[in-house]
Amino acid sequence: MLQVLAIGLISAGIYALFAVGIVLVYRGTKVLTFAGGEVGTAALYVAAFLVTDHGMPWVVGALAAVLIAAAAGLAFEAGLVRWSREADPVVTSILTVALSATIFATEFNLHGNNPTTLETPVRIGSGLDVDGVIVSPIQIAAIVVAALLGFGLQSFLRRTDFGLAILAAADDAPATLLVGVRVSRIRLVLWASSFGLAAVAALLVEPTVGFITPGYASTLYLGGLAAAVIGGLDSLPGAVVGATVLGLAQAFADKYFKGLGLSGLSYVVTLTLLLVVLLVRSYAPEIRKRLAAPVEVTA
């Protein structure tokens, strides 16, 4: 049991890191971003270029990767998102798909399908032994960082003026402008933070896999997207809870249904969970209404 919990929480930490970035942008702009996975992968290539190819310390490479990812977020907002502001948020979401595909193609052109390695300070295989599962410090860090971000950012949004401005801009951007908030600046910060977070997530995930290929983080990012949706899409703590539910569900399914020999079991679990959550959410108001309605007694 402990073993399954440990595996589930490791996955949860990874999904939560991506999910927090997704929810942050969604709360501020109502845009669902699909680019985080490839942004994270590209950030790893940047880190690998500096650390593996040029012998720089991992910290320097990681810092550069996060900063470049954040800068890419700024450029994406200023160069593309800003000009589609009048359009439906779905249009901007599709732009993020296009960005993801462009980054993937660029990675493929530059590196092909050859695995690239990034020397990290901590390797998998050493760390805390939980019922036979070795949980490395970087995996613990991923879980802790995800929880801190999920709950810390929520508090930041409610307690600071800038955080409130983010929430208000999502509610009603023109009215937010009229209280003197520079909404365009908020959007820049949101996109930069989201892309920066994707880089942080990818850096914390990389040692678990040990090598980088094009599209590497996108598979995990799908888990982050599912976690964000399970958590309600507009709640940062919800994203962490959603990631935990998803991570644990996958781990339990892997433990108890592995014998069935189903390929892609984790996808089946993810899609089933999504389906159940979306169904419950759409029918919940009706169910609540029916439960609250007085029962008619006929003689």
Partner: peptide, 20 residues
């Protein structure tokens, strides 16, 4: 155009954005 999802106090705090 009050911010429907924010509380009264949060609306007012945001109203005082430049004052603060």
């Amino acid at each position: 155009q009050v911010f429907a999802n924010l509380t009264v106090e949060e609306n007012l705090r945001l109203g005082a954005y430049t004052l603060r």
